[in-house]
Design a protein around this nucleic acid. Structure first.
Length: 271
DNA sequence: ATGGTCCCCTGACCGC
DNA sequence: TGCGGTCAGGGGACCA
């Protein structure tokens, strides 16, 4: 489910409810999600939340003792609820705040995680991440250098979080469509001019999607329970068999499986 | 290093 | 109504 825009939407929704608030209790309704939930997260108890940051698709909830690290996986969401609100199936963890509210971690498939990052330590899962796509370090020169000589399909490479973070299956297809690049093309065989278009497309699409509150296809909701509205802006994702939306193209959107993930493109518009 | 595959898990949907 | 197969916003682990 959540790619960068959805995680950022989650961060923004949570921020006003958590900053400066003390965590008074952590309720675990199961011992693990994707990974065991480490006992160290209890160090948060009694601590005020200093900041809520996003790195890639991770959220970091900072305290003076360290940071809780949350990933939403495919089906995770975080809601702000009254701490005594009825618990639904798959509500796995509550971070209860002194305000009487709680951050409730809901994740049917349990591909998400809740981990602990001690002070002045970069968690191993964060250590190899590439640059943030919305920062200046992510530009065509950088991408050209990382893609040089690579035979992997460009869509797979664009989703490789070691190259650039935050781009998942929806936005990879959408950005490649907008840049006119065939997702099956070898990453190292894309022209510099097209990489420029791709970088611009990635930045524009992610920024616009954040403004729309992310994409809700099935189950994503922000911390207030509101879906995102970017789905109506999708040009190719899950549109196999439908007409290409490029004026005058007349082609049909195709679906192909690349790197085990469904991919959507127009072979007339994307080379 | 790089590329490819498998798998974690639940729920929704579709055809029989 | 039930059953099996397919698919889903991610990514770690393991293989050649």
């Amino acid at each position: 489910m959540p790619e960068l825009p959805e995680v950022e939407t989650t961060r923004r929704g949570l921020t006003p409810h958590v900053i400066g608030r003390r965590i008074v209790e952590i309720v675990r309704r199961r011992a693990d999600l994707r990974f065991p939930i480490p006992a160290q997260i209890d160090q948060l108890i009694g601590e005020p939340v200093l900041a809520l940051r996003r790195r890639a698709k991770y959220l970091l909830l900072d305290s003076t003792r360290g940071s809780a690290l949350l990933h939403l996986g495919m089906s995770g969401s975080l809601r702000i609820v009254s701490a005594d609100a009825p618990v639904r199936t798959h509500d796995h963890v509550d971070l209860v705040l002194a305000s009487g509210q709680a951050i409730r971690f809901h994740d049917p498939r349990r591909f998400g995680c809740l981990l602990w990052q001690p002070l002045r330590v970069v968690h191993p899962l964060l250590a190899t991440l590439g640059p943030e796509p919305l920062e200046e370090a992510f530009d065509a020169s950088y991408l050209a250098a990382r893609f040089a000589g690579r035979s992997a399909q460009i869509k797979t490479a664009l989703m490789d979080q070691r190259i650039v973070v935050g781009v998942g299956n929806i936005y990879a297809s959408e950005a490649l469509y907008r840049a006119g690049i065939d997702p099956r093309r070898a990453a190292g065989r894309v022209s510099r001019a097209r990489l420029e278009l791709l970088v611009d497309a990635v930045k524009e699409i992610l920024a616009w999607a954040i403004g729309q509150g992310g994409t809700t296809l099935r189950d994503f909701v922000d911390p207030a329970g509101t879906p995102g509205y970017f789905a109506q802006s999708l040009k190719v994702y899950e549109r196999a068999g439908e007409a290409c939306l490029t004026a005058g193209c007349g082609g049909t959107i195709e679906r192909a499986v690349l790197g085990q993930r469904a991919s959507y493109f127009c072979r007339r518009c994307q080379r």
